[in-house]
């Protein structure tokens, strides 16, 4: 509903004689465009020249981080899949072959065509395993090709590792239990506060 106080009355600008003759104004316009003919061009020759980009917070293609031993850092907690507003993440969790965690993703697929690159997965991830990279120029010949599986996402990590190093490499490094049986649950919470673990 528009209130009367919101209404602003604007009179049409009164045209001068030169304005109404139109031609003088045309000449003014031509002068402006003529100046632009010789101005410095703003074009960037894209594939050869690239604009400097903000690596830290650019939301491009995803990657799955590896820990320092080269294993996938994901613990298959399904937080990202739950947070994803576009439902583009599909995870199948399985029992981890490594003793320092319970689960790891057997399958980890992201449909890059469905994704809206909002970064919610990155926010949700408790172990900083999924991250968005500054990589934006990806192509594929089919829709199937644009569904990135675990291997491809890990490869993205290798490709962008120098450009954007992993923020916190030792996030899953609670190696209190190498070899032995899985401790009771109260010990587990203690383990989470093991040295090297950042306080969240």
């Amino acid at each position: 509903m528009i209130r009367d106080s919101d209404i602003v009355f604007v009179d049409e600008p009164r045209l001068t004689a030169a304005d109404r003759l139109y031609l003088p104004q045309v000449v003014m316009g031509l002068k402006t465009t003529f100046r632009h003919l010789f101005k410095k061009k703003v074009t960037l020759q894209y594939p050869e020249e690239k604009r400097p980009m903000r690596v830290e917070n650019y939301r491009g293609v995803h990657r799955l981080n590896k820990d320092e031993k080269g294993r996938v850092a994901c613990v298959a907690c399904f937080m990202c899949e739950t947070a994803c507003p576009a439902h583009c993440i599909h995870i199948e969790g399985g029992e981890a072959p490594w003793p320092d965690r319970e689960k790891y993703p057997i399958k980890f697929d992201i449909d890059e065509l469905r994704c809206i690159y909002c970064g919610m997965c990155e926010e949700a991830c408790p172990v900083d395993a999924i991250e968005l990279t500054p990589e934006f120029s990806i192509v594929g010949l089919s829709r199937e090709e644009m569904v990135f599986d675990k291997e491809k996402l890990l490869e993205m990590f290798d490709r962008t590792r120098e450009l954007k190093p992993r923020k916190n490499p030792v996030i899953t490094g609670y190696e209190y239990n190498t070899g032995g049986p899985i401790p009771p649950s109260d010990d587990q919470t203690e383990g989470l506060k093991a040295p090297g673990q950042p306080q969240r």
Partner: peptide
């Protein structure tokens, strides 16, 4: 070309 130059393009 003219269109581009007027618009500060190449």
């Amino acid at each position: 070309k003219v269109a581009a130059w007027v618009q500060d393009r190449i």
